[in-house]
């Protein structure tokens, strides 16, 4: 069984972001880089699937500059068997369609029976790549899974819906799944496995070889949202206060929607 996991390296979200000159993306200098949180669940689920079926080969694929190799090594240390870096210094500027197109170009005719991605990246957050990839490959896909079981090439998964309700979906492979937080507990890459990951294959493919899809959108500007002003102070009659607050909550938050 061949399994593909698509992973993105993102900045630590606790970072203090600065805008890049030209303000089309954040400045990538002085950031600590991590595996996209959602993708950790994707890697873990792939490794669990391999453990379940006994023999499987997991490819971890990531698109970006040289620095993504370190995060790919983490995936290898968690149990992926080989890595494919699509070398691309301007991956940050590519839209979901272009990214999915690159992955599809690589994955087509590689005979993957199961593909895992995070449900979205923490930095761009479009949540499209997994589904687009599946559509391009002609595979079924299920998004936002929080539970995964496999039996004889059939997958029974649970999608997370609003309010903690889950939808149970059955699908036959080959298929693409986009992973939600809480799907499993991603393992730590143990120290011996970190050392062993050094010896695993990590192939680099120039993006030019795989880039066939034209983008359909472009970033015109990136900026910081307006800061909160001073807090509003409400005083007066209790029932009127309650009405005022409800009105504010409806306008400013999504909690009463």
């Amino acid at each position: 069984m061949k399994i593909l996991v698509c992973m993105k390296q993102v900045p630590d979200m606790e970072s203090k972001f600065k805008l890049s000159p030209g303000a089309l993306w954040y400045d990538t200098a002085d950031l600590a880089w991590r595996m996209n949180e959602y993708d950790e669940y994707a890697v873990e689920q792939a490794v669990r699937l391999k453990e379940q079926v006994g023999t499987a080969d997991i490819t971890i694929l990531s698109i970006g500059p040289d620095r993504i190799k370190e995060t790919m090594k983490k995936a290898l240390a968690m149990g992926c068997d080989r890595g494919v870096q699509v070398a691309d210094d301007v991956a940050w500027a590519k839209d979901p369609l272009a990214i999915a197109g690159i992955i599809a170009e690589y994955a087509r005719s590689k005979d993957f029976s199961c593909i895992f991605t995070g449900m979205q990246s923490q930095d761009r957050g479009s949540g499209q790549v997994g589904v687009l990839l599946a559509e391009m490959l002609g595979f079924p896909s299920v998004t936002t899974i929080v539970d995964f079981t496999h039996e004889n090439g059939e997958y029974l998964v649970k999608r997370e819906l609003e309010g903690g309700v889950k939808a149970i979906v059955k699908v036959k492979g080959p298929a693409v799944f986009t992973c939600q937080l809480g799907l499993n507990s991603p393992r730590y890459p143990t120290l011996p496995n970190i050392m062993k990951a050094k010896k695993k294959e990590l192939l680099t493919i120039p993006v030019e070889q795989l880039q066939k899809t034209a983008p359909q959108q472009e970033t015109t500007r990136i900026f910081f949202p307006e800061k909160k002003g001073g807090g509003l102070i409400l005083e007066g009659d209790i029932p009127a206060l309650a009405d005022q607050l409800i009105k504010i909550l409806k306008e400013k938050t999504s909690v009463l929607a």
Partner: peptide, 8 residues
């Protein structure tokens, strides 16, 4: 952050 996106 906020990103402003144009559809093509």
């Amino acid at each position: 952050l906020r990103r402003q996106v144009k559809s093509l």
